[in-house]
């Protein structure tokens, strides 16, 4: 590959220092995510999937090892610089959506753009386009409490895409949804990948895993299959 990977983890470990005994969530994990890749991460509950995703998404930092986002070492960045990276370079979708309850769907999608300093007119165009993309143009004025789970997750995906990240990380995006609404989300991720965004999705859902081009299997804080 001539292009640098979008994100790369080198010998990454994450230990949570707990009162009783430290918990090793990740131990010596190495992985590269190339531009435009579609990766699914599977494994039993508690094996470290979320922790890996948080570290790849600069939400968390490893106890040891290096994370490089577009060849920049995340470990040497300040908290504010990592925040900027999350805002502009990486989209994150959580199992529990984490939309802002007092904002409408439109405002939730517009917020990261405003924070990134996108001009008002561009913001408006982009927000309309994104809500259209996730099929919620008619629900723009609705607050999260007025939306179904599937709709909230679609708003969350639109928000994650707001600043045109080259990488989308999704942690069990269908975990709280029934099969049919989950299907919508899968279709959306598929389309997103086709449009050129690299997607890493953590899932228990075989249907989601089946769509991905690479499958990573984790166990006890390590990638046991699919790492390359």
């Amino acid at each position: 590959m001539t292009q640098p990977p979008i994100v790369e983890a080198r010998h990454v470990s994450r230990v949570f220092p707990m009162a009783a005994a430290p918990v090793t969530a990740l131990s010596d994990v190495s992985i590269r995510i190339e531009a435009g890749e579609y990766v699914a991460v599977v494994g039993p509950s508690g094996c470290g999937k979320s922790t890996l995703l948080h570290i790849l998404g600069c939400v968390d930092v490893p106890t040891s090892g290096d994370v490089l986002v577009q060849d920049r070492n995340v470990g040497s960045l300040s908290d504010a610089e990592r925040s900027r990276l999350r805002l502009r370079e990486i989209g994150f979708v959580f199992q529990r959506f984490f939309l802002l309850p007092m904002l409408t769907a439109w405002e939730n999608v517009e917020l990261p753009q405003a924070e990134a300093g996108v001009a008002r007119l561009d913001r408006r165009r982009r927000t309309a386009e994104l809500l259209e993309y996730v099929g919620l143009a008619s629900r723009a004025a609705h607050r999260p409490s007025e939306l179904s789970g599937g709709e909230m997750q679609r708003v969350a995906i639109a928000r994650a895409l707001a600043n045109r990240p080259r990488l989308l990380l999704a942690d069990e995006p269908t975990g709280e949804l029934d099969q049919r609404t989950g299907g919508h989300i899968i279709t959306l991720l598929d389309r997103l990948h086709e449009d050129g965004t690299a997607v890493v999705v953590v899932t228990h859902d075989v249907a989601v895993a089946a769509c991905a081009h690479r499958l990573l299997t984790m166990r006890d804080g390590q990638i046991v299959e699919g790492s390359s």
Partner: peptide, 16 residues
């Protein structure tokens, strides 16, 4: 705290 946590996850800095 949910709101602040969400803003931080989206990429708002502490200072902001």
């Amino acid at each position: 705290s949910d709101v602040v946590g969400t803003l931080r996850l989206i990429g708002f800095t502490r200072r902001r």
